[in-house]
Every structure is written in structure tokens, then in C-alpha cells.
Simulated scan of single mutants.
Amino acid sequence: MTEEQTVMEKLFTTLDEQAKALHKENGQSLIENLGLAMEQVYTNQRDLLEQATLQDRRKAFQFAYLSLLQEEDVQANHQITPDSIGLILGFLVDKFMSDYEEMHVVDLASGAGHLSATVHEVLKNTTLMHHLVEVDPTLSRVSVHLANFLEIPFDVYPQDAIMPLPFEEADVVVSDLPIGYYPLDERSHEMKLGFDEGHSYSHYLLIEQAIQTLKPTGYAFLVVPSQIFEGDHVKQLQSYIATEAEMQAFLHLPSTLFKNEKARKSLLILQKKEANVTRPVEVLLANIPDFKNPQQFQGFIQELNDWMGENHSEK
């Protein structure tokens, strides 16, 4: 390592090299070994770790994860949520929940935990209790190692996020929804967004699960395909959302983050209804500009603030 390296770069290099060395020794996947490498640094290289801020640590993990993905073919659900998406999502949680000093935050289909880590970093002045639900055993183990490495509290539940969940109502649900078909028809038939015939959409079922997990007036911040309100089953989805929640905002993420328009994602913000209370909201529909254009981004913030003033003046 050279002297010029920043603390974050030193941490990244250490994680990257140790994960590759462990992989040679034990033959387990590089991602699995990144978890073990974080544990080794946490246990044996305290001096290096203690020089690093939370952001240094998270970025070192992110870069190591992306570096290892280049060397290993992984399935789509092993990708991590980019920090640009996590940071804007965290910013929006902060905006909507500005009067909360502590929050119970659930991350459904949480993967390696990077989205929760990024949200935690943004909400540094709020006490957060994180519940992460992830069915993939490798990823749920990595998220436990990540929590230790970042020294932030994650409760990790290694289970299918569409199955019944073992905790009380959340203030906030975040999720970067995996897209696809859910194979367990017996479970989807118990749910309102399950289809009568064939496999149901896992992303629909996770929207239902997100709303069910919230306490009344709680918020879901969901990364969804931009075309989610198009296609054959969309009336079922719209009707469910209208019955159970107030749709607050549908915000298109910057197109520069995606390979093509078909892959583009948006942020869907929903508030769970309170029994017998109607809060009519004019849905905020907007494009989030590229973060590299500060002037346009300021314009978006102004639009958001104006909308909050009109629709959430109590905040």
C-alpha cells in the first residue's frame, strides 16, 4: 500500500486482497469471503478500522463488492443497490420523517445490506432500529458481517420476505424490489396481490408485504421498475394501493444510472392508511435529475419542498 492512499482506499485494498486470498484457501464464493474479510479486519485490524468514518467503511465495502463481482458470475439478485440510489432514498426518508427522533426501519429483500447501510449513513441524527429480511443465506451472512464492520445495529432475518414476518409494525419500509415471478403459489394465493392463475409477481407481493408491515401512517420507500404501472395486472395493483395506502410520490431516478430505458427504476413512496381517515394528497410526479447537475438538482429539491408545504404542512 502506498502512503498516498486514503483510509478508504487502504480499507478497500485490504478487503479485496483478503477476500481473494480466503477464496483461494477455502474455495467459497468471493462474496462469502468478503464477509469473512470484513470480520478479519473488524477483529484484527482495529487501528485501520478506527481511522475510518462510517462513509469510508461503507464505500470500501461497496468498491470491494463491485470489484469481486467483476471476477465472479453472480445472479441478478446479488447486485447491490448503488449508493446514488441509497443516498436519494435516505434523503427522502429524512424529509418525510423529519419529526422522528427514532425509527424502526424494515428492509425487505435486503441483499447484502448496502441499502440499509446507506440509509443509516444519511440519517445519522436519528436513532434507527434496522430489521433486514433476506432469503439468500450468503447475502444474509454478508449483511451480518457488514453490520459488525460498520458498527451499526442490524437485526438480520434469514427468511423469504414474502412469508409472514416476525416483528411488530414498522415506521418505515425500504426495499429495492427484486423483479420476477414468485414460485410459491400457496403463499401468493393468501395475498391480495397474488394472481388467480400462474405464478404471481414477487415485486407486487413485496409491495403488499411492505404496506402490511407498516404501522398506520407509516411510509414505504420502494425502488421499483419505472414501468410498474403498465401491463396486464396493473389494475389489481392500483386498486390495492388505493385501498390500503395513499400514494405520495412516483419519482423517476436519473436515466444515467441505467443501461437503457427498459432497465430504468423509480422511487414509489406510499403511506399506509389510517382506519377511517382520508388524507387526500396530490401525488408528486417528478424526474430526479442527475446528481452531477447541482443546479437541476436544486430545482428538484425546490419542487419537493413546495409539494411538502402544500401536502404535509404539519411537518
Rank of each mutant, 00 (worst) to 15 (best):
residue 42 Y to M: 05
residue 42 Y to N: 06
residue 37 A to C: 15
residue 19 A to W: 03
residue 33 N to F: 00
residue 29 S to R: 00
residue 35 G to E: 13
residue 41 V to Q: 07
residue 17 E to W: 01
residue 30 L to R: 02
residue 23 H to I: 06
residue 41 V to T: 12
residue 39 E to W: 08
residue 24 K to S: 10
residue 31 I to A: 04
residue 41 V to I: 15
residue 20 K to S: 05
residue 38 M to H: 09
residue 46 R to L: 15
residue 23 H to L: 08
residue 43 T to I: 14
residue 34 L to F: 07
residue 25 E to G: 05
residue 45 Q to N: 08
residue 21 A to Y: 08
residue 16 D to L: 06
residue 20 K to D: 05
residue 28 Q to T: 10
residue 25 E to H: 05
residue 29 S to Q: 01
residue 31 I to Y: 01
residue 21 A to P: 06
residue 29 S to V: 03
residue 20 K to A: 07
residue 44 N to M: 14
residue 26 N to G: 05
residue 18 Q to I: 15
residue 35 G to D: 11
residue 40 Q to P: 10
residue 28 Q to G: 04
residue 28 Q to D: 15
residue 17 E to N: 07
residue 35 G to C: 15
residue 22 L to S: 05
residue 24 K to M: 11
residue 18 Q to T: 15
residue 45 Q to H: 07
residue 23 H to M: 10
residue 46 R to K: 15
residue 31 I to T: 04
residue 41 V to C: 12
residue 17 E to A: 07
residue 18 Q to K: 10
residue 45 Q to P: 04
residue 16 D to Y: 08
residue 33 N to R: 01
residue 22 L to D: 04
residue 27 G to D: 10
residue 18 Q to Y: 11
residue 30 L to F: 03
residue 25 E to L: 12
residue 45 Q to E: 13
residue 31 I to K: 00
residue 46 R to D: 14
residue 45 Q to W: 02
residue 18 Q to P: 03
residue 41 V to Y: 09
residue 36 L to A: 13
residue 45 Q to V: 06
residue 23 H to Q: 14
residue 42 Y to A: 09
residue 32 E to L: 02
residue 35 G to I: 11
residue 45 Q to T: 05
residue 39 E to F: 06
residue 20 K to P: 00
residue 36 L to Y: 09
residue 29 S to M: 04
residue 42 Y to L: 09
residue 43 T to R: 05
residue 44 N to G: 15
residue 32 E to D: 07
residue 16 D to A: 03
residue 44 N to Q: 15
residue 22 L to I: 09
residue 38 M to T: 05
residue 33 N to G: 04
residue 22 L to N: 02
residue 32 E to S: 08
residue 40 Q to I: 15
residue 34 L to M: 07
residue 43 T to F: 09
residue 40 Q to W: 12
residue 43 T to S: 11
residue 25 E to P: 03
residue 42 Y to I: 00
residue 34 L to P: 07
residue 35 G to Q: 11
residue 17 E to P: 00
residue 19 A to F: 06
residue 39 E to A: 14
residue 36 L to G: 04
residue 22 L to E: 01
residue 26 N to M: 05
residue 19 A to M: 03
residue 17 E to K: 02
residue 31 I to E: 04
residue 21 A to C: 07
residue 21 A to K: 10
residue 32 E to I: 04
residue 28 Q to P: 08
residue 36 L to H: 10
residue 21 A to I: 13
residue 27 G to I: 03
residue 44 N to K: 13
residue 21 A to T: 13
residue 28 Q to F: 12
residue 16 D to V: 00
residue 34 L to R: 02
residue 35 G to K: 06
residue 29 S to G: 09
residue 33 N to D: 03
residue 37 A to W: 10
residue 23 H to G: 07
residue 46 R to Y: 09
residue 38 M to Y: 09
residue 44 N to F: 15
residue 37 A to L: 13
residue 30 L to I: 07
residue 39 E to C: 08
residue 30 L to E: 02
residue 44 N to C: 12
residue 46 R to H: 12
residue 46 R to T: 15
residue 23 H to K: 06
residue 42 Y to D: 07
residue 27 G to W: 04
residue 24 K to N: 10
residue 41 V to E: 09
residue 24 K to Q: 12
residue 26 N to I: 06
residue 32 E to M: 04
residue 22 L to Y: 02
residue 36 L to S: 14
residue 28 Q to A: 14
residue 25 E to C: 08
residue 21 A to N: 11
residue 32 E to P: 00
residue 35 G to R: 04
residue 42 Y to V: 02
residue 44 N to R: 09
residue 35 G to N: 11
